[in-house]
Structure formats: structure tokens, C-alpha cells
């Protein structure tokens, strides 16, 4: 039932951040249409090892679209051509026999390249550490049903919380902006009653850290929304803007 494809890959190879990289062409032969994009790369890597060529390095882990570890810009699109799909869940049935496929890493200044297709996304962790949490010491929590939360608020919070932190939003943005990621984090907690005490501080600190890490500004291209595998809506960016504006006014910080 499985058909196969013969493809040409143009893969970005780069030994490390200090060495210039380049596209290298590899044939990908007899690729079953039922396999995922990463399984296709596994097959190619297996043939490279047979030829004593070092395999292509790429990030991946869960391979079921939830951990956010996989990346790859495929033919110029972060996570490839299918909407709402991570690279690990992109299947080869969406390609045609004879296709040439360009495979590149996320290209964002705040995600320095480590090797081949692997980049360092620890800037997202630092933004989260700046305020992306609710301080709730283990053992101190009240009964979970003591604070009812209207279903629509809980659902909206969940829509934002679904972010997998992969970095595609910044990779797709012409400004390398991380606004969709930060918006998802700030909105998730701002929509819940438990998130209120630290709401102002959170928005200010996360946005400040985002800027400090070198991410660009949002100028409403909405490329982020188009590539987001978790379908985070750009309306959360509007919410972040409101959160930040109110927070800045409250804290007496000037908004430019």
C-alpha cells in the first residue's frame, strides 16, 4: 500500500557556529510515502553512515508533535508545508516523486546555531524564567475546586497553554520576533485567577527579557500564526500588547 518517492535534498551542513555552513546535496531514494519527514532523514543518514559520511544532525525527541524539540525550515517554511503540523508529524505523502527539498535550521539571531540543523533555543527558557510562572510552593495550595473558573476562561487559557515552545514563530517572522511565544505564555496565566497576583510583573519582565535576548518587534506579518504547529492565535499578541501597556502604566514605566 505504501508508495515510494525519489527526492533530492539540499541540506544545510555546518560544523559549528564558528565555521561557515553550506547546502549539500544528497539523494533520498525509495522513501515510503507513509514515513515522516524525520524518518526520511533517518533513512538518508543510514546511507550516509554506509558511505562513512557523518550523519546530518537534527533535533528531535518525542516524534509525536508535542515536545517541541524538532525544528527545520523545509522549502522556506518553518515545519514545512502542512498547517498545524510539526516536522516530526509531517509525512512524506505530502511530497511528490522527483521533488527537490531544501532543509535549513531556524535562522534567528537569538537562536545561535550549534551544528547542521540544530540551534540553541535557551533564550526561550530565559524568557520563561523571567516570569513565566505562578509562585505556588508545593504544599501551600488550596483545594482545587475552591476557586471556580468559568469554562470559557479555562478553555482560552488552554488554547494559549498549548504552545510547544518550538521556536517556529520566531523562525518564520521577518523580524525574528518571539511575540507569539511570549503572548501564549503571558495570556495563559493572565486568563486564570491564580495568575493575577504576578500578572503585571510577569508581563513586564517577560517582554523586557525578550527584548534583551535580541528578538525583534512584531509588525503584524502573522507569519508566526501561519506556521504555529499548536495553532496559537495571533489574537494573543493583542492580548499581550494590552497586558504590557497596562502593566507599564501601572508600574510607571514609559511605553514608547
Amino acid at each position: 500500500m505504501s508508495d515510494t518517492l525519489n527526492l533530492t535534498l539540499k541540506v544545510w551542513r555546518q560544523k559549528n557556529a564558528g565555521t561557515p555552513g553550506k547546502f549539500v546535496e544528497y539523494p533520498a531514494k525509495n522513501i515510503p510515502t507513509d514515513c515522516s519527514f524525520l524518518e526520511m532523514l533517518d533513512i538518508v543518514n543510514e546511507t550516509l553512515v554506509q558511505q562513512n559520511i557523518e550523519p546530518i544532525a537534527f533535533d528531535h525527541d518525542c516524534r509525536e508533535g508535542i515536545c517541541g524539540m524538532c525544528s527545520l525550515v523545509i522549502n522556506g517554511v518553518a515545519h514545512g508545508p502542512e498547517r498545524a503540523t510539526t516536522t516530526c508529524q509531517l509525512h512524506m505523502r505530502h511530497f511528490k516523486d522527483g521533488d527537490t527539498i531544501y532543509v535549513e535550521p531556524w535562522r534567528v539571531g537569538a537562536f545561535p546555531l550549534i551544528k547542521d540543523l540544530i540551534v540553541d533555543r535557551s533564550s526561550y527558557d530565559r524568557i520563561q524564567q523571567a516570569g513565566g510562572f505562578i509562585t505556588a510552593r508545593a504544599g501551600s495550595a488550596p483545594d482545587a475546586n475552591s476557586v471556580p473558573i468559568p469554562k470559557q476562561n479555562a478553555d482560552s487559557a488552554m488554547d494559549a497553554a498549548a504552545c510547544i515552545g518550538c521556536g517556529a514563530c520566531a523562525a518564520a517572522c521577518p523580524n525574528s520576533s518571539a511575540m507569539l511565544f511570549v503572548a501564549a505564555k503571558v495570556s495563559h496565566l493572565a486568563l486564570l485567577p491564580q495568575g493575577q497576583p504576578e500578572r503585571t510583573r510577569r508581563a513586564l519582565k517577560m517582554v523586557t527579557t525578550m527584548d534583551k535576548e535580541g528578538f525583534g518587534n512584531c509588525t503584524n506579518y502573522y507569519e508566526c500564526e501561519a506556521v504555529c504547529p499548536a495553532e496559537i492565535k495571533s489574537s494573543f499578541i493583542s492580548m499581550l500588547n494590552r497586558e504590557y501597556a497596562f502593566a507599564a502604566v501601572r508600574d510607571g514605566v514609559s511605553v514608547i
Binding site: F133, I134, A136, A138, G139, S140, A141, P142, D143, A144, N145, V147, P148, I149, P150, K151, A154, D155, A157, M158, A161, H188, L189, L192, Q194, G195
Partner: peptide, 22 residues
């Protein structure tokens, strides 16, 4: 039971009924 309390306090958006309870 304490785990559910703790996770709710940390902002885990568990599924809720229309009345707002879990």
C-alpha cells in the same frame, strides 16, 4: 488529591464544567 490542588495553583488549565468546577 494534593497533586491536583498543587497543579491547579500552578496554572494547569484542567478541563472544567460550565459551573467552573473541575
Amino acid at each position: 488529591s494534593s497533586i491536583i490542588d498543587q497543579c491547579t495553583a500552578l496554572g494547569v488549565p484542567f478541563a472544567r464544567e460550565y459551573g467552573g468546577l473541575l
